[in-house]
């Protein structure tokens, strides 16, 4: 499949959303709200749940399926409050030694006057700073769109898995085409140039695993995913050099010898 076809697939409203994954994979999910600073952003959901017999903190960027849901969720574009809610829940996870699992699906951080006033850049930066040294394992599953800094703010993880048709990019192909060629309709060419597919991310070492979309949304699909996640989380929980390994993982991207 061509890169831009995957972008379009990743954006389909029929794809599983973060809440679909959360309800299908975990047991006893209890959703928590609010950033304790300003408000509660519905584009970000989070809480605690059981992954098999492991208590975990789960956070996701939720797009919704129907138009009404998508409007309510700002189409999965988090405001600073969303990132700060996630930050609060991650710190809580650290306190109670719970691994963190994030589901990422966003075209990017919310773009608007209020978001700028309330420090969108600062909110993302603080998540990066905190996640880089969070003492519990972090596993991120990119289920749809991985839109730039808005996605990375929940994806500075020990492991990044991507669904087969998920994409991860520094800029949308449309935005890239309009900057490069002053022509947003050349998005397909931009999508190729950006190397934004799961296979690309895997080849750069940025993604660690590609999840087959065979039977996507079925019980079998979620059961498989749950087993893989449990195994991975158990392994990470036993890693005594977790933080050093996480540092080196990101340190390696573009490393030079001087």
């Amino acid at each position: 499949m061509e890169a831009y076809e995957r972008v379009k697939t990743a954006r389909l409203s029929s794809r599983p959303t973060a809440l679909d994954c959360i309800h299908s994979i975990f047991k006893g999910f209890i959703e928590f709200h609010g950033d304790r600073r300003h408000g509660d952003d519905k584009a970000v959901v989070g809480g605690i749940a059981w992954l098999g017999d492991i208590p975990v903190t789960v956070i996701g960027i939720e797009k919704g399926h129907t138009t009404a849901e998508r409007m309510e969720r700002s189409f999965g574009a988090p405001e600073p409050e969303g990132y700060r809610k996630a930050l609060r829940l991650m710190k809580q996870a650290e306190k109670f030694s719970r691994p963190v699992i994030t589901f990422v699906d966003t075209s990017g951080a919310y773009c608007g006057v209020g978001a700028e006033k309330r420090g969108q850049g600062q909110a993302i930066a603080e998540n990066l700073l905190t996640m880089s040294a969070l003492k519990v394992p972090v596993l991120t599953i990119l289920i749809g769109e991985g839109g730039s800094g808005g996605a990375l703010a929940l994806a500075l993880a020990d492991r990044l898995w991507m669904l087969e048709n998920a994409v991860y990019s520094v800029i949308s192909p449309e935005g890239c085409a309009s900057i490069l060629w002053r022509d947003g309709s050349k998005a397909a060419e931009a999508a190729d140039a950006l190397h934004l597919t799961a296979a690309d991310a895997l080849s750069f070492g940025i993604a660690d695993r590609i999840i087959s979309e065979e039977g996507i949304g079925t019980e079998d699909f979620y059961a498989r995913l749950k087993d893989d996640m449990s195994g991975e989380i158990r392994g990470l929980m036993e890693d005594s050099s977790l933080l050093e390994r996480r540092y080196q993982r990101f340190r390696s991207f573009g490393r030079r010898t001087t």
């Binding site: 990375l152 500075l156 991860y168 520094v170 690309d200 940025i206």
Partner: peptide, 21 residues
Amino acid sequence: ARMQEGLLSLMQMAKTSAAVR
């Protein structure tokens, strides 16, 4: 981030933040 380097430039946000931390 410099879009001409794709995801690799996005990762610099994480890398530099980890070093700042």
